[in-house]
Design a protein around this nucleic acid. Structure first.
Lengths: 216, 216
DNA sequence: TAGATTGTTAATCGATTAACAATC
DNA sequence: TAGATTGTTAATCGATTAACAATC
């Protein structure tokens, strides 16, 4: 009731999936409990950081014992919204769009793909992973019947803003954006997560170059 | 001579590709000069940050004038190693591997794909974007003739460590890792850039969930 | 010259790490 | 109980922002 807990910093949030990953692995290998110290060693972070991060969301541990692996894993999954059964659509059935459509692992985490859209007549009508690609023209109609939560944008950057605004007007809740263009400025009221693959590759090539020039 | 300039922080490096992107766009639309203030507004960051970031690498601007767009763009491209003509190989010709192989934009930035490897007999021998998929068994041989700089790992996580170590032993310089597993602990002397797509999606679903619960 | 804008130093803010009392 | 380990407060470190003299 009116509790005014301060927003958890995004740097903390971005570490949660990594905790989730390690905890899932521990759980699968049958480990029941783990201390922040042991987990920290495994993940190469400090135990302090783990305890601080977790305590943004509540006390999941127990003094003298540590954390129950599967309990903590479930709690983090919950924080991340993995139990909310998000529905997704893919806009752009090019190489990347098709790759994501065929990628099974997201389904396991509770993301359900319910539509694929494109404007290219060569791909509209094709079936990808059991879903028939629809023309973008039919997207209004689609939203009248279904309310997808997340749109996955795998389209060229020159049309990204236009499409994002269209989706926003239809009431999409989040956009997972693979087009090489920042969308957070273009769209209001929709959560945006940009994946800039080429940025990541450039970072790697910087690191390589630096290593080479180390003895300058 | 022995100049001991401190390492530039990785948070700064990760902003460079974004600067590069905006400057390329400005350049393409014919803009010749820009001030840190104007660029900051466009990118929704502070002018201070831009000037601090750039000055990690030298003074690219001019008082009273600002920055020459194409000069600065070229300088950042240089820092990021975009003119070094990195050669790449893809390990894992699944959906994602094929998508990246077919993605043209990397070539434009000076990354040249020279090999694709897999172990699945169904894909070995197939031609993807002009390159015949080779069997992993032939990779030693391949490295004897060619020395690729970067390996793009699009393989299941259970074989990622093994393959990464193999590549390291062959002298790869960087690994762009798409398998859902951290590799920086497993491999010495190789630069690693992890792309955890599912981490990114989970971050998005957290953001959506938070928004929904805003009025609690 | 006067105005604009940099490069850079200083101040602030936020994130990480260390320390330790509480407690299982 | 004694030992272990948390949750949490305090100290440190690093990153961001503000300010301004230098200078084009």
């Amino acid at each position: 009731m009116g509790e005014m807990k301060k927003d958890v910093s995004l740097v903390v949030i971005r570490r949660l999936p990594r905790y989730y990953r390690y905890l899932t692995e521990l759980k699968e290998s049958g480990i029941v409990r783990i201390s922040s110290k042991a987990l920290a060693e495994k993940m190469q972070v400090t135990a302090s950081q783990i305890r601080q991060d977790l305590n943004c969301f509540g006390g999941f541990g127990q003094q003298g014992y540590g954390y129950n692996v599967s309990q903590l894993q479930a709690a983090i999954g919950d924080i991340l919204g993995l139990n909310e059964n998000h529905t997704t659509i893919i806009i752009g059935a090019g190489n990347l769009g098709r790759a994501i459509a065929n990628y099974g692992s997201f389904e396991k985490r509770g993301y359900r793909l319910i539509g694929i859209f494109d404007i290219n007549p060569d791909v509209v009508g094709k079936v990808i992973n059991g879903i028939t690609v629809s023309h973008m023209d039919t997207i209004d109609e689609f939203f009248q019947k279904q309310k997808p939560d997340i749109a996955i944008l795998t389209i060229p950057k020159n049309v990204a803003v236009e499409v994002a605004q269209k989706l926003a007007s239809l009431g999409i809740r989040g956009i997972w954006n693979f087009s090489n263009m920042d969308l957070h400025m273009a769209v209001e009221g929709v959560e945006i997560e940009n994946v800039h693959l080429s940025d990541s590759l450039m970072t790697l090539s910087y690191k390589i170059g630096k290593r080479k020039g180390e003895n300058k």
